[in-house]
Amino acid sequence: MAAVAAHYEELQALDVHALSVSTDSHFTHKIWQEEELSKMIDGGVPFPMLSDAGGRIGTVYGVYDEDAGVDIRGRFLIDPDGVIQAMEVMTPPVGRNISELIRQVKAFQHNRATGEVLPAGWQPGQPTLKPGPDLVGKVWQVWKPGKNGG
């Protein structure tokens, strides 16, 4: 959460609107922001912090842990058509990797703009694949697994 806030400018530059969600009330979000987050991050968390009291939103997203009564860690990248393009769900002890998220945003946006597909580990500027009859059986000519971090 704080890590997403710390990379907020990068997300904004990609025109991605962040929303955080937990089962805490909006009152709790306010105090967390004032007492702690604003001291971790200049200006505090800049995006809306949503309350999922009761876990009903988390339930339909598959992240609500009924035993603990909380939403576990899950992030969902939703495109301008409202379609989920990527999701990642993790148990609570381990935080997410924002740089991988940023890479995925760039890759999905590139695909949306060009129709090109992006091989494993693709980073902006690296070769892309243009699906079609000519590419069948020829991927080896433009891309090898293990190169470019893939």
């Binding site: 997403v4 988390g58 939403d71 939703i78």
Partner: peptide, 11 residues
């Protein structure tokens, strides 16, 4: 718009 929806266990 592109949206990043992030669930987390708690404040």
């Amino acid at each position: 718009k592109w949206v990043l929806l992030c669930f987390y266990p708690g404040d």
